[in-house]
Design a binder for these strands. Structure first.
Ligand SMILES: [Mn+2]
Ligand SMILES: [Mn+2]
Ligand SMILES: [Zn+2]
Ligand SMILES: [Zn+2]
Lengths: 134, 134
DNA sequence: TTCATTTTTGTAATCATTCTAAATTTATAC
DNA sequence: GTATAAATTTAGAATGATTACAAAAATGAA
């Protein structure tokens, strides 16, 4: 289990440094679509010398190597997701939580996309989550 | 035709100042999902005293009054759209153009959204547009 | 060890957006 | 009309996320 992440990083052409493993661990354990700052604030508690630039560098490397995707559901802060499969997101305007929406990939194939070559797909909803609807 | 826009603004509770009319005119005529800077660079040619802050103010007012929507398909610059109907967008990674995708609203009603109260829906695709696929 | 390469760090720079207070314009009262 | 109040616009400073950059530290091979 503890050995899985280094191998996964290596499989994506990423040398598994301690910091990189910790960032990836954060993404897969929390599954909270964090911002750079959320990751930094958590990891800096155990890695006091951690630089926020390092978190940026690592996340950009993950994006480049296809190990994570960027979520732009928040207008002024990039969020990250280690789940690179095709799925949608919902952001609650009250509790600010970002939830996964499991969607049928077939529903994503729109006829109006004929002629376009698709590299990325993003589906975002915003509103109130079930708990915040009280 | 020239009188329609002031009335539309008034209907949305917006006093139709000259600047506001010009910004709205830009949005509906160009239909290019512009950034603040794109609007500013165009309008400042005829309104030399125009401030970029004014463009920000006006667009934020439009968003607040439901006269336009914010498009976050570009990671580092907000885009705006005067078409507030439910439709998707495609951004070409080559020519940087943003295209409308007319989609069947029925297809947006996912069963996994039960319990969520939806205020906004965004569907973005990125890749190559038909022309850039050569 | 030595030396080269990679990774991390701290700080400065960039850039989009917001804040703020003054200036200008527009509307209202007299 | 003028005076006054309110709304709009403006310029520049402040903010905040992200990137650039160059030095420091860690890693790994010879
Ligand atoms: Mn997700
Ligand atoms: Mn559109
Ligand atoms: Zn909520
Ligand atoms: Zn194109």
């Amino acid at each position: 289990m503890i050995e899985r992440i280094p191998n996964l990083l290596r499989a994506h052409g990423i040398k598994p440094s301690h910091h990189r493993i910790k960032v990836y661990e954060y993404l897969v354990e929390k599954r909270n679509h964090p911002s750079v700052d959320m990751i930094y604030q958590e990891l800096v508690q155990n890695i006091p010398t951690l630089s926020k630039t390092t978190v940026y560098n690592i996340l950009n490397l993950f994006l480049e190597k296809g190990l994570a995707v960027m979520i732009t559901i928040d207008e002024n802060e990039t969020r990250y997701d280690a789940d690179t499969s095709l799925h949608g997101h919902f952001r609650c305007n009250n509790c600010q939580g970002i939830y996964d929406l499991r969607l049928d990939p077939a529903a994503w194939e729109w006829e109006s996309l004929d002629g376009f070559e698709i590299n990325e797909s993003h589906l975002y909803f915003k509103g109130l989550c079930p708990e915040c609807c009280h």
